[in-house]
Computed example of a mutant assay.
Amino acid sequence: MPFVRPDTVPFPSIWHRFERVKDGRTRKFFVQDATEDMFPFLLDHMVEAFCRNEPMCKSLDINSEPESIEGMEILWRHILEGKMVIVCFEEDPEIPGKPLRFVGCNMTYIAEKDDPTMDELIIGEKWKTIYDAVDFCGREGSKILKPDRYMGAMGLSVLQRFQGMSIGKEILDARIPLCKAFNIPWTVTCFTNIASQKLALKCKFQNLFEISYDDLEKVDPRFKFDIKSTKTIRQMYRQVE
């Protein structure tokens, strides 16, 4: 039975707050649930930023294939409708809790053991290649850990102007109180970029499965990615405690 967010937890909720000091000024941030009015903006952001920067998307030039972009939007919209996606904002210094500007997001969702696959949502040759590579890593990881319920994700993105401030780490950390609120015991994700892999390690994620991009091509000739910045792809997990 697919996960349905219960009404017992307020929506939207703020899950995490943190601060950064820059140029002698303290800036406040928070991570909250993504609400429906944000969906069009978040879809545009993921297409514009994530598809341009994620190593496999960049390698295959996924933005050159409209059908694949449509396919990614279909999947992300499906995830957004689950009401478990989280968004980071810089807080208005004058009005606590009011967003001043968008910072980043994580396309998080809840998966359960007997859920149907998302395969039917996948269209576009390039997107299917990337999705299948991620799915392969997930299946390999599940040979070690196969929880009945966990939080997964299909994309972590932070605006370029905020990169280098460990914002991604804070967004990953926000998963923990979110999972606790819904009794989700694990969070499991495929990290494809060296930057996100380093952030995940700082957030106490551990490897379930790791394979080099060179060896990934040996699994399936479609998985040929010309990636210099990141050597491996990692399926990682963190127990929610």
Rank of each mutant, 00 (worst) to 15 (best):
residue 90 E to H: 07
residue 106 N to M: 10
residue 31 V to I: 12
residue 15 W to T: 09
residue 222 R to G: 07
residue 175 R to K: 07
residue 137 C to P: 09
residue 150 Y to P: 10
residue 117 T to D: 11
residue 82 G to T: 05
residue 83 K to C: 08
residue 164 G to V: 01
residue 122 I to P: 14
residue 139 R to W: 00
residue 89 F to A: 02
residue 196 S to G: 08
residue 78 H to R: 12
residue 69 I to V: 14
residue 119 D to E: 15
residue 26 T to M: 09
residue 78 H to I: 01
residue 94 E to G: 13
residue 142 S to Q: 12
residue 30 F to H: 03
residue 207 N to F: 04
residue 159 L to D: 03
residue 52 R to Y: 09
residue 238 R to Y: 01
residue 240 V to G: 02
residue 53 N to A: 08
residue 92 D to G: 04
residue 241 E to L: 14
residue 109 Y to I: 11
residue 60 L to W: 09
residue 100 L to P: 11
residue 22 K to Q: 13
residue 19 E to V: 08
residue 225 F to W: 04
residue 111 A to S: 15
residue 148 D to W: 10
residue 16 H to D: 03
residue 154 M to G: 15
residue 169 K to Y: 06
residue 83 K to A: 02
residue 122 I to S: 08
residue 231 K to T: 06
residue 161 R to N: 06
residue 207 N to E: 03
residue 117 T to H: 12
residue 101 R to C: 11
residue 103 V to A: 01
residue 120 E to N: 11
residue 173 D to A: 15
residue 207 N to I: 05
residue 205 F to W: 03
residue 156 L to G: 15
residue 180 K to H: 03
residue 140 E to P: 07
residue 149 R to S: 07
residue 187 T to G: 07
residue 74 I to Q: 12
residue 169 K to N: 07
residue 146 K to H: 12
residue 48 E to R: 13
residue 24 G to K: 03
residue 203 C to M: 07
residue 189 T to N: 13
residue 70 E to P: 14
residue 129 T to I: 09
residue 24 G to T: 02
residue 216 L to R: 01
residue 20 R to A: 03
residue 126 K to N: 08
residue 181 A to L: 10
residue 234 R to Q: 04
residue 117 T to A: 14
residue 197 Q to A: 05
residue 72 M to P: 15
residue 99 P to A: 06
residue 193 N to D: 10
residue 144 I to C: 06
residue 103 V to M: 01
residue 20 R to Q: 06
residue 3 F to H: 09
residue 88 C to V: 04
residue 150 Y to G: 09
residue 205 F to V: 00
residue 46 M to W: 13
residue 213 Y to N: 00
residue 99 P to H: 13
residue 98 K to W: 00
residue 137 C to D: 01
residue 198 K to A: 12
residue 11 F to V: 07
residue 57 C to W: 00
residue 119 D to C: 14
residue 158 V to H: 08
residue 143 K to N: 04
residue 80 L to V: 00
residue 213 Y to L: 00
residue 179 C to N: 06
residue 51 C to M: 12
residue 28 K to Q: 05
residue 83 K to Q: 11
residue 232 T to P: 10
residue 86 I to N: 08
residue 43 L to N: 12
residue 155 G to I: 07
residue 178 L to E: 02
residue 6 P to K: 05
residue 124 G to C: 11
residue 79 I to S: 06
residue 99 P to K: 08
residue 109 Y to V: 08
residue 25 R to H: 10
residue 94 E to L: 15
residue 191 F to Y: 13
residue 111 A to K: 15
residue 91 E to F: 09
residue 101 R to W: 04
residue 122 I to C: 10
residue 232 T to H: 11
residue 37 D to K: 14
residue 241 E to Y: 13
residue 178 L to A: 08
